[in-house]
Design a protein around this nucleic acid. Structure first.
Length: 357
DNA sequence: ATAGGGTTAACC
DNA sequence: GGTTAACCCTAT
């Protein structure tokens, strides 16, 4: 609709917006300095391209965050964004989002595919046997096949309410680490930056992020080494709900013993390690555990309304810290205490190991 | 309504 | 002349 400003072809929705359009164009003139030199008359046939303003881009990002990519019409109708985006159609939103996804990666699938297509055309000119795009793309870069524009590849937000942000953040973190492709893993800042760049997260995202990183590490989906996180080799993207979460849900009803095969042995070795610690080491270890728990609790407190998982994780960390403290107080009772606190929750094994690294 | 390929205007 | 972003077209 916007592209037909002044057009006699599809100008049906023009009159009501005339004054608005004028002010909008004026805004563009100001914000972009020189405005499309080819067009001395803004209302001539072939309306000038309307560059997206930062406000519009922000609204689009926020809209995608809220409704998910692909819900262009919904975003457009949302009163929260309809004001800023009133000059854009749902197709405009889609195209812009595609462009943004492309530039966010430097090279997007579309662009690379186009390059590949150009090459294939050049090749076909020579040998007269044009290749399909997909074939060319595959041959040039196997990654391309699966590299849809990032935001498109993320699942539409199905879960309503505040839980949506939480469960989605899991995927974002994994995506971030995966796409950052740092050999030794990515630190929290890099992950936060990535998410911020691509998804325009809510302002409390960093707080949530800390808790979620901890939770993902605890459940074994991420491996933390020296403040850097990488995806665990066996971590399957599709395995959404970790056993930890289920166990945490069930633990209040009845403690469960059916843990991962290695869980008990890991705990045993850890307990042995604890028993063999010097008092100083144990104190430091306990202090660290307590600090971790407190940090997790503090983070969870702030994100509590939204991050149930984070809270559960904090509780788990707290439980472990308590176990550690009890260990210090009564070494002889260590095994019983730890078995009570730790055994039902296999993810704490990872927690222990992670905290000790 | 949406996705994705294609086209074109603006920019360098 | 190449690249990019906005826009167009069409299949689903």
């Amino acid at each position: 609709m916007r592209s037909t400003v002044g057009s006699t072809v599809e100008g049906h929705d023009t009159p009501p917006f005339c004054s608005l359009l004028l002010s909008y164009i004026g805004l563009n003139l100001r914000s972009h300095g020189c405005f499309y030199s080819r067009s001395n008359n803004l209302f001539q046939m072939g309306a000038p391209k309307q560059k997206w303003t930062p406000d519009e881009e922000a609204a689009l990002k926020a809209g995608v965050l809220k409704h998910g990519p692909g819900k262009w019409r919904t975003i457009l109708k949302d009163p929260e964004f309809s004001g800023v985006l009133c000059m854009r159609s749902n197709v405009d939103l889609k195209d812009k989002w595609r462009n943004m996804s492309v530039t966010a990666y430097g090279w997007g699938s579309r662009e690379r595919a186009r390059i590949a297509l150009k090459k294939s055309r050049q090749i076909s000119k020579h040998d007269g046997t044009p290749m399909s795009i997909s074939t060319v793309v595959k041959d040039n870069d196997s990654e391309i096949v699966d590299v849809k524009p990032l935001a498109m590849s993320s699942e539409p937000l199905q879960i309503t309410g505040q839980k949506r942000t939480v469960s989605r953040l899991d995927d974002l973190i994994l995506e971030a680490i995966s796409n950052l492709k740092e050999p030794t893993g990515s630190n929290k800042t890099a992950i936060a930056l990535y998410i911020e760049d691509h998804y325009w997260p809510p302002t409390d995202c960093k707080q949530l992020l800390s808790a979620k990183l901890k939770a993902l590490t605890a459940c074994g989906r991420l491996i933390k080494v020296k403040r850097k996180y990488r995806i665990a080799p066996t971590s399957a993207f599709s395995e959404e709900k970790s056993s930890k979460f289920l166990l945490l849900e069930g633990r209040q009803k009845e403690p469960r013993i059916d843990v991962k095969p290695l869980s008990k042995s890991q705990v045993e070795s850890e307990l042995t390690r604890m028993r063999n610690m010097t008092a100083q080491e144990a104190a430091a270890f306990a202090a660290q555990a307590v600090a971790e728990a407190e940090a997790a609790m503090a983070e969870a407190e702030q994100a509590a309304r939204e991050a149930e998982v984070a809270e559960a994780d904090a509780e788990a960390a707290q439980a472990f810290a308590e176990a550690a403290m009890l260990t210090l107080k009564n070494r002889n009772a260590t095994k019983q205490v730890a078995m009570h606190y730790i055994t039902p929750y296999p993810s704490l094994d990872d927690c222990i190991l992670t905290n000790l690294v």
